[in-house]
Design a protein around this nucleic acid. Sequence first.
DNA 1: TTCACGATTGTGAACGTTAACATCATGAGC
DNA 2: GCTCATGATGTTAACGTTCACAATCGTGAA
Lengths: 328, 328
Amino acid sequence: MSDVARLAGVSHQTVSRVLNEHPNVRADTRARVLDAIDQLGYRRNLVARALVTSRSRTLGVVSFDTTLYGPASTMYGIEQAARAAGYFVSIVSLRSIDAEGVREAIGYLTEQGVDGVVVVAPQRSAARALESLPPGMPAVAVEGTHRANVSVVCIDQIEGARLATKHLLDLGHETVWHVSGPSDWLEAEGRLDGWRSALEEAGRPVPEPLTGDWSPKAGYEAGRRLAAMPGVTAVFAANDQMALGVLRALAEAGVRVPEQISVVGFDDIPEAAYLSPPLTTVRQDFDAVGRHCIEVLLRQIDAIGPGTYERLVVRPDFVVRASSATAP
Amino acid sequence: MSDVARLAGVSHQTVSRVLNEHPNVRADTRARVLDAIDQLGYRRNLVARALVTSRSRTLGVVSFDTTLYGPASTMYGIEQAARAAGYFVSIVSLRSIDAEGVREAIGYLTEQGVDGVVVVAPQRSAARALESLPPGMPAVAVEGTHRANVSVVCIDQIEGARLATKHLLDLGHETVWHVSGPSDWLEAEGRLDGWRSALEEAGRPVPEPLTGDWSPKAGYEAGRRLAAMPGVTAVFAANDQMALGVLRALAEAGVRVPEQISVVGFDDIPEAAYLSPPLTTVRQDFDAVGRHCIEVLLRQIDAIGPGTYERLVVRPDFVVRASSATAP
DNA sequence: TTCACGATTGTGAACGTTAACATCATGAGC
DNA sequence: GCTCATGATGTTAACGTTCACAATCGTGAA
């Protein structure tokens, strides 16, 4: 920077002012400085800047298994929104989901000097780790708990599950079976609750849910069991991958979808529209989730003192395709 | 840090030494310092450290559409390996794939002071951007060009495509149709070449390939065209998502897979094993790619002076499932 | 007892930037 | 012509580490 200053015949402070678009710099001085910058190929050192401003313009994201479509999409949305706002994104993907791991990850990020963290950790255990955030660290949880000491952005899982369940009931099905996600996932819980409440509201019997782990394999196994059960005409799977497994198991068992059994999923993965048959599902707007996360987080970073905690709920859409039809 | 030093009754330098596990610190001094650190809840400031050492222990990753299974998995592998090596990962996901975007992203990361960059940009245009890397910046490309001014880690696309094509020929198919990826993708090109060379080697006719954009939709459209063409008995799709679209189109057209037409994909996405029918495909070890990236990059960072450029090729596996069978 | 030498600890400067304040010129208003 | 506000620029001191070097302490051999 001092090289630039020397070449432009000004002080380093003036160079800094030009760089930061300070208004009080004469136009010709600015031009001279910019020229010098160009000539020397100078790039400012953001590390030094972060040291003195104690703002790194970096956000941390803690996530779990970014290979899954949901987390990957959320991450993408977060990164896009963050960069649009002039922030960098530093990520930590956890292999396991214990509170200790989340805590450690947040610790790392804190040391690194991030201005805030987004925690995409939709497990009950991981959400618990949020209760021991470093004081003063702005944070947003995606699908976090209802505890009030952290802001939360989430998709209305209950509503999504209700949409799916009601859709099936409206088609004349007596009741709807459910293949749920792992019990410690908040999303799994929300979808379970939504499904159950929709059935109860309609005064229908609530069958015992089958529990899976989000994987196609789990869906397949649940599908085999469902195919063997008499009277099953409608299945709501807690995500599309499991729905896909269910479809496979039903096909293998010679059960026709949707003629004999209707299947509905959740997520709207890119594959959903091209399965056999194309899958009726609940679409989540992960982009919106990412955007809201950054909005909330930036508000919190810019707030003076401990801001209030927000809770932002994104409504899901329902996409009707060919895997659901009127009851046989 | 000076607070810790005062509490422990030592100089700030000794605290630094304890933190960096310098050997020449007496055991009881170390204990006293650690105690003080604990008591004050002190965390070191990595930004200040980065300023003076000019090492941020952060790596940058530039990627394109991390929503896709391949890039997402590669990213995951990279992050895991980087963290294991004590590095942070800062990401930039590009929405579009022009060289300008890649250049800009690398510029951002350079300003931020990353110690090296991994560029996952398997398009010809993006790969070109690597030719104008900031001098002295360690870099690794995933699926980059063959140009020698940057290290490359890649999966042997040609070999994978040859495995798939030969498998189908061995099953007695006269020839194999191909649904390729977008022409400016290096992976698409590699798979096309592998497919073509396998056919030529066997002295078989080489049909005009159908070009897609990796999406299930593109596969579906290609599938419809293939279903209408007489004499098609085997199709090799350049990725699993397109293969899925092909399967869907064939199912719609009443063509049975694999009895009438065999289909093979590429990637082995988690869904592949549970499609109808389960998809024969080429598995890519993205974890290995991520690991190798970090290994190569760290070697380059630790090397004194301009190291040599490496080229590391990961061999794909072939997974036989039910979507391929002997020719009708 | 003395000395040399390695182990341990301390001191000051530096990394590259911005914040805070100081300085200087310019021009408007009386 | 004088004062005073305002805009443009410069000067100095941080930010929290590590590096290079200096100083001190202890220990074993002569």
